[in-house]
C-alpha cells in the first residue's frame, strides 16, 4: 500500500491523486462533517471506549516522544565506544547494572521500547538492553512513590514491588543469555539498523516515532476495549481462591495495560484479593502488557514477541509470588 502511489504520482504531477492528497482530503471531509457524524456515534459504550482509548494515547504521547528523543540521542550522538564505557563488557554483569539503571528513567513503558531498540542498535548486548526495558517502567521513584500513596501504612508493599520487579528484569536478562541464544542473535541482526547512524538526529526521531506510534495505538485500542467491555466484577469473582486469584490478576494486568504510575491505585481497590495477588498485578503490569507486547512485536518482530511475552509474564509471576510469600 505504501510504495505504488508515490512513484506514479511523481511521474505525472497534477494528474493523479497521490496518497498524501487522498489522506488529506479524507481527514478534511471527516473534520467538516463532524456535525453530522457526531449524533450517529453517540452511544454510551462507544463513547466510553473512545474516551479511554484517546486517554491512553494522549497520556502516552509525551512519554513516547520523550523516549524517541532519548533514543535518537543514543543512536545519533553516542558512539559505541562511549556506550561501552558505561555498560560493563560482560553481559553477565551488565544485566544487573541495566536493572539498576532503570531507576533513573522515570517514564512509562512506552518510552522504554524505543530506547531499548536504540541501545541494541548501538551494540549493547540485547539481554542487557531487555533488562533495562523491563526495569525502567517498574522500579523508578515515581512508580514507588505512587505505590506508597496507594497503599498507605503498607511500606512493605513498596519494597516488595521494587525487589520483585528488579528480580524479574535481571532474571529475564540472565535466562535470555543462558537459553535464548538464537533469539538474541535474531534480535541483534534485527536491531542492527545500518542506516541509524547515517540519519540525522531528526531523521532518527521521525523514523522511530513513526515505527512505534502505530503499535502504541493498537495496544491502546485493545486495552481500552478490555477496560470498557470486561466488567471488573468478573475479576472479583475469583478473589477467594489463592492460585486462581494470582493467575487472574496477572492476566488482568496484561490486558488492561495501565500506566505504571497509576496501576497501584487500581491494585489497591482489589480489596478482596490477597496482598500477594495484588503484588503480582503490580509486577506483571509494568513488565509486560498488551500495549508493550504490541510495541515489541512492531519493534523486534512477532516471532520474538511470541516467546518473550510469556517468558516475562511467567518470570514476573514467580518472582512476585516468591517475594510476596517472603515479605507480605
Amino acid at each position: 500500500m505504501s510504495t505504488k502511489t508515490p512513484v506514479r504520482a511523481a511521474q505525472k504531477p497534477g494528474f493523479r491523486l497521490g496518497q498524501t492528497e487522498v489522506v488529506a482530503i479524507v481527514l478534511l471531509v471527516i473534520l467538516l462533517s463532524q456535525r453530522w457524524l457526531l449524533p450517529l456515534l453517540d452511544h454510551d459504550l462507544f463513547n466510553t471506549w473512545g474516551t479511554i482509548f484517546v486517554a491512553i494515547v494522549v497520556q502516552s504521547a509525551p512519554f513516547l516522544l520523550g523516549g524517541v528523543l532519548l533514543s535518537a540521542v543514543i543512536s545519533t550522538f553516542l558512539s559505541e565506544k562511549a556506550l561501552s564505557k558505561i555498560v560493563p563488557k560482560s553481559p553477565v554483569l551488565g544485566v544487573p547494572v541495566a536493572g539498576l539503571a532503570g531507576i533513573g528513567l522515570p517514564g512509562c513503558e512506552c518510552a522504554a521500547v524505543p530506547v531499548t531498540n536504540s541501545l541494541i542498535r548501538r551494540g549493547v548486548a540485547p539481554a542487557v538492553a531487555l533488562t533495562f526495558l523491563l526495569a525502567a517502567p517498574a522500579v523508578n521513584p515515581a512508580v514507588l512513590v505512587s505505590t506508597a500513596v496507594a497503599f498507605p501504612g503498607q511500606p512493605m508493599m513498596v519494597l516488595a514491588r521494587f525487589l520483585a520487579s528488579l528480580i524479574t528484569a535481571v532474571a529475564v536478562g540472565w535466562i535470555m543469555m543462558a537459553r535464548g541464544k538464537l533469539l538474541l542473535e535474531r534480535l541483534t541482526n534485527l536491531g542492527r539498523d545500518v542506516h541509524a547512524h547515517e540519519r540525522s538526529f531528526l531523521g532518527n526521531v521521525s523514523h522511530d516515532f513513526l515505527h512505534a506510534s502505530g503499535f502504541l495505538v493498537l495496544g491502546a485500542m485493545l486495552a481500552a476495549a478490555v477496560n470498557t467491555f470486561v466488567p471488573r466484577s468478573v475479576v472479583n469473582t475469583v478473589a477467594g481462591q489463592a492460585v486462581l486469584g494470582i493467575a487472574t490478576l496477572a492476566l488482568f494486568a496484561f490486558v488492561v495495560a495501565l500506566c505504571s504510575e497509576s496501576d497501584a491505585f487500581v491494585a489497591a481497590s482489589f480489596t478482596a484479593f490477597s496482598d500477594t495477588a495484588k503484588l503480582v498485578f503490580l509486577v506483571v503490569g509494568p513488565a509486560m502488557d498488551i500495549k508493550l507486547a504490541s510495541m515489541e512485536a512492531g519493534q523486534f518482530g512477532i516471532g520474538f514477541a511470541l516467546r518473550f511475552v510469556p517468558l516475562v509474564i511467567i518470570t514476573a509471576v514467580a518472582s512476585a509470588v516468591g517475594i510476596g510469600w517472603w515479605l507480605l
Partner: peptide
C-alpha cells in the same frame, strides 16, 4: 532509507479522527 514504515503506522491517524469525529 527512512522511507518505509510499517502498515500499522496508519493507525496513528485513528486517535485524532476519533477526537474530532466522536469527541468522546
Amino acid at each position: 532509507h527512512g522511507h518505509k514504515v510499517p502498515a500499522m503506522t496508519w493507525l496513528a491517524l485513528l486517535p485524532g479522527v476519533i477526537v474530532f469525529v466522536a469527541s468522546p
